[in-house]
Structure formats: structure tokens, C-alpha cells
């Protein structure tokens, strides 16, 4: 099995095996494997989809039909930091459009349009489930609640100046956030290293102490 992804890193091969073993039917592993393949290939490239298809035993076009349904499987390159601004109803009511404009004014190319060497991409997204702390923003899917246009500008400046290796929600919340939907509890050491949801079994989370 692993021969079809012999070019993947040892860790990612092990992750793929363990993901495939956790479902009664192999096809269920498509979405998790697309996340792991994004680590290997930068984003969901044609090669990434070919690898996932080979692992599961279906055709690449079947994988593509799944990948294209979901907005989080990025089929073109995005920046190192994907800044997602929620503009859904609750955030809209308390000024999310101004947050989005502030960020877009600072990021060349604007939304959904990162060039080869751009380090920041901006997108507006639908409800992030942070309506009690609206407006909400995510960086590589790590959440910040209670963001203002000024704080959002400062966030972009901070990402450029410090290029954090691991993006931590608690750190960003402290620096750029305001009111939260609820008490988050203790700070987390795990965060995202890429524009992928940071989750241990998918290899996308890393600890930062």
C-alpha cells in the first residue's frame, strides 16, 4: 500500500495507514487523506489527488469530484497564512465588512488570489461559529474573536513581521482579539503550521512551547 506513496515522508505514510485503518470502508478516508496530501504537496494538486486515489483504489477524477465540493480543500496555492474573515449575519451586524476591507486593503491581490510568493491570502467566509464574539477571523483556521478593523490591520502587520512558525489561537486572541463567545479555558500549546486545520492525526498540528 505504502509503495504508491513511497515519495511521502515516513510520518505522513504512517498517518495515511492509520487513517485508512480507522474506517470500515477505505473511501471514507478521502477527506482526511486530502488534508495529509496537502502537507506533502503544499495544496490539493493533481498529484495530491492522484496519490489519494491510488491509496484508496479509486480514480483521480473521483477524488477530484469530492475535493471540488469542499471549500477547505484548496486547489490552488494559498499563502503561508490564510486569513479568513467571517462576514455571515452575526458578524455582519457588528461590522465584519469593515474588518474585511481593512485586511484586503493591506494584502496585495486581495481575496482568494495569492501569487507564487505571497505569504498572506485573504478570504471571506461564512459563519465560523463564533457569533458571540463577532466579528471573528481565523488565521490558518485558528480563531480570533472580537476583532476590530484596527486590530485586524495590526494582525496582518504582526504576521508579516514575525512570520510565526506555529499559529496559536490563544496568542492571537490575546494580541488582537476582544470579546469571546465563551471562556476558552486554559491556553493551548498546539497550533497550525500551514493553512490547514491543525489536527494531530492529520499531521497538521504542532506544539509550540
Amino acid at each position: 500500500m505504502t509503495t504508491v506513496i513511497a515519495h511521502w515522508s515516513h510520518d505522513n505514510r504512517k498517518r495515511a495507514e492509520s487513517i485508512l485503518a480507522s474506517y470500515p470502508e477505505r473511501r471514507s478516508a478521502i477527506m482526511p487523506l486530502l488534508y495529509v496530501a496537502s502537507l506533502e504537496h503544499d495544496y490539493v494538486t493533481s498529484d495530491a489527488m492522484r496519490d489519494v486515489a491510488a491509496l484508496i483504489g479509486i480514480t483521480p477524477v473521483q477524488v477530484q469530484s469530492v475535493a471540488s465540493f469542499y471549500t477547505m480543500f484548496k486547489r490552488s496555492r494559498v499563502g503561508d497564512y490564510l486569513v479568513s474573515v467571517c462576514t455571515s449575519i452575526s458578524c455582519y451586524l457588528v461590522g465584519a465588512d469593515d474588518v474585511l476591507s481593512a485586511v484586503e486593503n493591506l494584502v496585495e491581490g486581495g481575496r482568494d488570489d495569492a501569487g507564487e510568493d505571497a505569504s498572506i491570502s485573504v478570504e471571506h467566509v461564512e459563519c465560523l461559529g463564533a457569533c458571540g464574539g463577532a466579528p471573528a477571523v481565523q488565521v490558518n483556521y485558528e480563531l480570533i474573536e472580537g476583532v476590530t478593523p484596527e486590530k485586524a490591520e495590526a494582525l496582518i502587520g504582526w504576521l508579516r513581521a514575525t512570520s510565526p512558525e506555529v499559529v496559536l489561537a490563544d496568542e492571537m486572541q490575546q494580541l488582537f482579539g476582544g470579546r469571546r463567545s465563551f471562556d476558552w479555558g486554559p491556553s493551548e500549546a498546539e497550533g497550525a503550521t500551514r493553512p490547514l486545520p491543525a489536527f494531530g492525526p492529520y499531521g497538521s498540528a504542532r506544539e509550540c512551547r
Binding site: 473511501r27 488534508y35 469542499y70 477547505m72 459563519c127 486545520p197 489536527f199
Partner: peptide
Amino acid sequence: DVTLHLGGGAYICGEETALLNSLEGRRG
């Protein structure tokens, strides 16, 4: 056994049969 499965950013997968399709590795 319990398996966690992350979605891909599609509201419709909250509809239970769409969710099942998604969990099976299909379009939601």
C-alpha cells in the same frame, strides 16, 4: 471504537444524509 472526522467547509453536511455521504468520502 470512536473515530473523529473533520469536515471540509460545507454547511450542507450538517444535514444528516449529506453528512453520511461526506463521511463515506463523497460529495456532501
